[in-house]
Structure formats: structure tokens, C-alpha cells
């Protein structure tokens, strides 16, 4: 099993869970399976081309998958995947 850490904005899609478990041989397969369990999750993570959205970092054990082999990055039992929205903010009204 692979542990996936879910950031607060996406927890509404995982029944409030901050961690879910998943299976798959690659990050791409893991995302498909997460989406089967939690419909709509893939849309929040990936753009229309299927790439990870440019304000989201997906880390496999602390390394951004963009610097590994993206969605083809292999995953194995015991791995930890973290989904982290890049920092943002807004000025005062």
C-alpha cells in the first residue's frame, strides 16, 4: 500500500481524511485509482492535458515528481506521496 497525504482543500473529497491509501505501479496509476475511490480528485490535481496543475506539487518521499519522471514515476509498497498546493495569498480588501 502507498500512503497519500491529502491537503486541507481536498479533504472534502476524501471524507475529511488527511491520509488515504492507494495502489498502483506509477503515480499516474495511483491518481487513477484515487479518482475511482474519490471521484473528481483527478480533476483537482490534473489539468485538461492530464498534467499536474501548475500550482500543485506532488512529492514522492520528499522529491517533486516533476524532477523524477512525472506521472510515470514508479511507486512501490511503503512509499509516501504528498500533495501540496504551492503557497499563495491575497492582499487586504
Amino acid at each position: 500500500m502507498i500512503t497519500i497525504r491529502i491537503p486541507t482543500p481536498l479533504r472534502s473529497m476524501t471524507g475529511g481524511k488527511s491520509e488515504i491509501e492507494g495502489k498502483g505501479a506509477s503515480i499516474g496509476e495511483l491518481i487513477e485509482q484515487m479518482n475511482a475511490d474519490h471521484p473528481g480528485l483527478k480533476d483537482r490535481l490534473c489539468d485538461e492535458q492530464g498534467e499536474i496543475r501548475r500550482f500543485i506539487n506532488v512529492y514522492l518521499n520528499e522529491e517533486d515528481i516533476r524532477f523524477l519522471t512525472g506521472k510515470d514515476t514508479p511507486v512501490k509498497d511503503g512509499d509516501e506521496v504528498s500533495i501540496v498546493p504551492a503557497i499563495a495569498g491575497g492582499a487586504h480588501d
Binding site: 497525504r5 491537503p7 504528498s82 501540496v84 503557497i87 495569498g89 491575497g90 492582499a91
Partner: peptide
Amino acid sequence: HSHTMSPARPSATDITLAMEFEHCRAAL
């Protein structure tokens, strides 16, 4: 980050979104 028209203190949005990062940070 910059505030071009407001003071140098975090807005409510800045705090909310910084907390989101805070919840992810320890794991990394």
C-alpha cells in the same frame, strides 16, 4: 510577497493559505 496597495501585514487570505501549507509542511 508584495502588497502593492496595503500594509506589510498578512491578510486573512494570507493566513488561511499559509496554514494550508503548514498542515503539509511537517510531512515534508
